[in-house]
Design a protein around this nucleic acid. Structure first.
Lengths: 335, 335
DNA sequence: TTGTAAGCGTTATCAC
DNA sequence: GTGATAACGCTTACAA
């Protein structure tokens, strides 16, 4: 409950000097500094955020924007891990992350834009977008126009946006390399054949190794029917690539279903076919067999993003931020 | 960017009257009210939270405390769903929920207590504890002593704590009833034989149905080894209760492992043995077969808790809050 | 029913 | 190096 005034009284200094000492801004004699430091500890002084914000008209709040499809959509534990990381870093700087969920299609929604303007109104010190999509880009631009530093967690570096991004290409590349090292040569990439860094990583690895590219295109389905989708995928893989001995799946969800499918078709994982998932979701741990999978370091991602954002906030850093983060192979039993 | 002063200037009223009109507190003539309302819209006025907090020395922040074992522990999607619900409700009242993770054993930690005192220092309008454990109870008491309304999401009503609680007893009771309806008579409860509402629910249902109680005690293990634990559990169940035709498992994790175990022992789920899990975790959807499970309505829980807390905050409600929430059986394929 | 004035705890501007 | 003093935008006595 101690305020600057209390510290001033205790030390015999003026509030002003105390304030400067605490913030290490401006001239303070060594003696005064020591007095203040001691009093701060003794009285357990904590600055009043509201007063700070009011006076300096900036807040100590970092808005974390998570754009999700639907109120009913499953909560994303990967997003949560990022938030953990963000929080971990920010608390060291006494900033307060504040989570904002915006229900909105990743495409665009006027409603979300309005919600966002409310968020801007509270003048957050900075904004973190947990994912990259059209809506997030749009809001990023709005934030920038409003003069509020923002950063994006994404999957590719960009010259237009400050971002910390995950190198999915490298992740899948390394996954393929691992399968090669294990002696697999007929490696299938199972997923949507869209232009995606995962796909690129697979292709690059296959080309580098001089083996042939084997894409099996799987249409993505809803999560509730993933086991069916997976089974169908297993059938498709075996019919299109009968001699397959390794599979890189587009997601853990898909991989988990494929594993079930292989099993029911009499193929053993990993003995007959090694299988690698993607994302290291909780599911990967409980699949049968538990999935070897390509993982983002979500918490680390959060930490790095918070750190980068704060550099923007504090140092008015104008250099484009582009931080690349590596994916790691988590070894379990499917490969 | 408009302030009270701007509205006052525009309407020709005093700041004071404007303030009262906006907050609907105290006497304001109909005419003045209309003037203010119009100006608010026209100037797009938003109150400055920092100023409000500073002056009234209370914040509009609801602290949401999630006590987790370890920084490395998996992020709990059930907790996240609760937060969604909380947020959903609070935004209607322009309160701002603020998530605080406290890494701490659920038992006790001096460090967490210190962290908590920092949170208290920011004078949140209210506090929500997402889970019930010794640490949360301790902090609840500290909050109460500090005069800050708090509420607990828990598993049992209590005369000492305001809480919104999930009726696990009823959940399991209904689960057993469902198995009975499906013609199962030899129903095993697989879990830790601790005094727990799940256990009570099972026992009550079994007694009511006049069938015998079949408890198979499973030691809980880490999540990474759950499939092994589950297999062992399946073996144990079949050896202790060879004629088992239904199983209520302590958790989805356990149930998922047991399903694998049964399958490898040649038992079909649900044909030979119906299996019901608990908690409706993501995993339940992806198990083989997908698990019928007893679910908490987490989002609803969050909404109700936020609502109850706000009643405490706004109305200085002193009546003990005890809101019981029912669990629902989510039907999938394992039973 | 409305207006005046004080003050919440801090930071910024200046004069000393 | 330091200390008055004003101001941030709002709420709350109290006076009118």
């Amino acid at each position: 409950m101690a305020s600057l005034k209390d510290i001033a009284a205790k030390t015999g200094l003026s509030m002003n000097t105390v304030s400067r000492a605490i913030r290490h801004s401006g001239y303070v004699s060594e003696k005064a500094q020591k007095l203040v430091d001691a009093a701060v500890v003794e009285l357990n002084y904590q600055p009043n955020r509201a007063a700070q914000s009011l006076r300096s008209s900036r807040s100590y709040e970092i808005a974390v924007i998570n754009i999700v499809n639907e109120p009913s959509s499953a909560c994303d534990s990967m997003a949560m891990d990022k938030v953990f990381g963000i929080k971990e870093y920010l608390t060291t700087d006494s900033y307060e992350p504040n989570m904002h969920y915006m229900y909105s299609s990743p495409e665009y929604s006027a409603e979300s834009e309005k919600l966002f303007s409310n968020i801007l109104w509270q003048k957050p010190a900075g904004i973190i977008f947990l994912s990259e999509n059209a809506m997030a880009m749009k809001l990023y631009n709005i934030a920038e126009k409003a003069g509020i530093p923002a950063i994006l967690i994404s999957y590719a570096g960009s010259l237009e946006y400050d971002s910390v991004y995950v190198d999915r290409r490298q992740g899948v590349y390394d996954g393929v390399k691992y399968l090669l090292k294990k002696g697999r040569r007929n490696i299938v990439f199972a997923g949507q054949k869209i232009s995606d860094q995962r796909f690129e990583g697979y292709n690059a690895a296959v080309v580098d190794a001089g083996i042939s590219s084997r894409i099996v295109s799987i249409k993505s389905g809803g999560l509730e029917e993933i086991s069916k989708t997976g089974r169908d995928a297993a059938v498709k893989i075996l019919s299109e690539q009968p001699d397959v001995d390794g599979v890189i799946a587009y997601s853990d969800y898909l991989a988990s279903g494929i594993a079930l499918g292989f099993k029911s078709l009499g193929k053993r994982v990993p003995e007959d076919i090694a299988l690698i998932g993607f994302d290291n979701r909780e599911l990967a741990m409980f699949s049968s067999p538990p999935l070897t999978t390509i993982a983002q370091p979500n918490r680390e991602l959060g930490r790095l993003t918070a750190k980068a954002l704060l550099s923007k906030v504090l140092l008015k850093n104008t250099k484009k931020i582009q931080i690349k983060v590596k994916m790691e192979l988590v070894l379990r039993q499917s490969a």
